[in-house]
Design a protein around this nucleic acid. Structure first.
Lengths: 224, 224
DNA sequence: CGTAGTTTTGAGTGCGTTCAAGAGATGTGG
DNA sequence: CCACATCTCTTGAACGCACTCAAAACTACG
């Protein structure tokens, strides 16, 4: 499960392009493209940028020496990721699918002197992150496997679901292992739980990564 | 376990005192005193202040409708608590022991216009909070009961431990139930695990709330 | 001194894990 | 384009860790 990866370390060996942003004073910002499975940053790297996902999905995680992994968050377009502490990243971040991010300078997170609007936006993002993590806590610490899995499906449905008749359709860009590491479960338990939801007609799988939710109420109730 | 509590809701029925802070321009700030088990704020309350603990200990938690509880953090002196989202608190906060807090205006978290130094300090505190929560995640999702309990003891030892000869002494201000809800375990499991640590001569209990750590290395190794 | 809450300990159970294997998907080189 | 290797997902069987239920020991408080 994610053993050796092509040695693509921190620094911009990956393409960086500059572009102009419209506004009072035109400012430049950097975008960066990542292929699936490429690393954006690792735990312990010096934090020079804070990133805004503009397309694709990234995974933010922590890994123990013995390989145990905890996924902290999945970053979808609009999400800000890479909050540093003491100038370092304390998580690692990899692209799950082909991804594009905007790299903001870390100084705009720390002070509003240079770009007040961006600073404000980043501070708000930090508060939103704290709120999201608080919910995630409840799930990790106090919910059963079924409740965890249902919560996760409900979350993805809300964020990325598209109506299909009276039903709702969405996709998993991440693997079962990623979901398991997000929920604090094993791959097998995640798979079994999804099968259970399938058998109870709550959802249908078009493929292992494509879901149609048949009964939203049942799903939300199950999320507890 | 924390059923009905004296009806002491949000607003300052509890004493608020004003004081002067030394600095270029003298500014006023509010301190607030809480007795053990008093509530500072509840989930859903309008967030007007962000608090800095100056003495005592508070508990920040989330509660599910069915009563399941997850403790997000314990606030010790120096800690900032009450990060809001969309103008509301999404957690509840109660004093564990007799506690004193300083109430900062929420606007100083959101912008630096009024008080730049304080704003900077609060933003840093938010980043520190995110970092602490990331570590807590790993513990909640991927560690065994022994590892969780050892991590918790190690954490408290680092923050509040005082050397006693070659050993280290500290106290639990919180109950076993609070610890259990912080670690995502039951009271019984926490109690049994601490007993196990006692039997293996890693720690000694002076009382159920007073610990001496005999073997710091063993404790830290156990924390994984 | 009695009552209520906290902590500990015991016995038994069940949920999610581990270990194992097969089916399905994806990608690469000949 | 197919054959082969690799990774992902699913399913089965058995185990064990932490949970539930129960009760006793200890502590604090009016």
């Amino acid at each position: 499960m994610h053993i050796s990866r092509a040695t693509d370390f921190e620094n911009p060996t990956t393409p960086i392009s500059s572009a102009f942003i419209r506004g009072n004073r035109s400012k430049t910002f950097q975008t960066r493209k990542l292929k699936a499975a490429q690393t954006l940053f690792r735990e312990g790297d010096a934090a020079r940028h804070i990133y805004e996902v503009t397309s694709g999905v990234v995974r933010v995680a922590k890994v123990l020496e013995d390989g145990r992994r905890q996924v902290i968050a999945f970053g979808y377009p609009g999400d800000i990721i890479g909050f540093p502490q003491d100038g370092l990243y304390h998580t690692e971040c990899d692209a799950i699918s082909s991804t594009e991010v905007v790299a903001h300078n870390i100084r705009d997170l720390e002070s509003g002197e240079h770009n007040p609007e961006l600073h404000q936006r980043l501070v708000m993002a930090a508060l939103k992150e704290i709120g999201a993590m608080q919910d995630h806590f409840m799930m990790l610490g106090r919910k059963s496997a079924s409740e965890k899995t249902a919560s996760f499906l409900a979350l993805l449905m809300e964020r990325t679901g598209k109506p299909v008749g009276t039903y709702t359709h969405f996709e998993f860009p991440m693997t079962r292992a990623d979901i398991a590491d997000f929920l604090g479960l094993t791959v097998e338990t995640v798979s079994r739980t999804i099968t259970k939801f399938r058998n109870s007609k709550m959802i249908v799988l078009e493929s292992s990564k494509s879901v149609i939710v048949l009964d939203q109420d049942a799903l939300c109730n199950m999320a507890a």
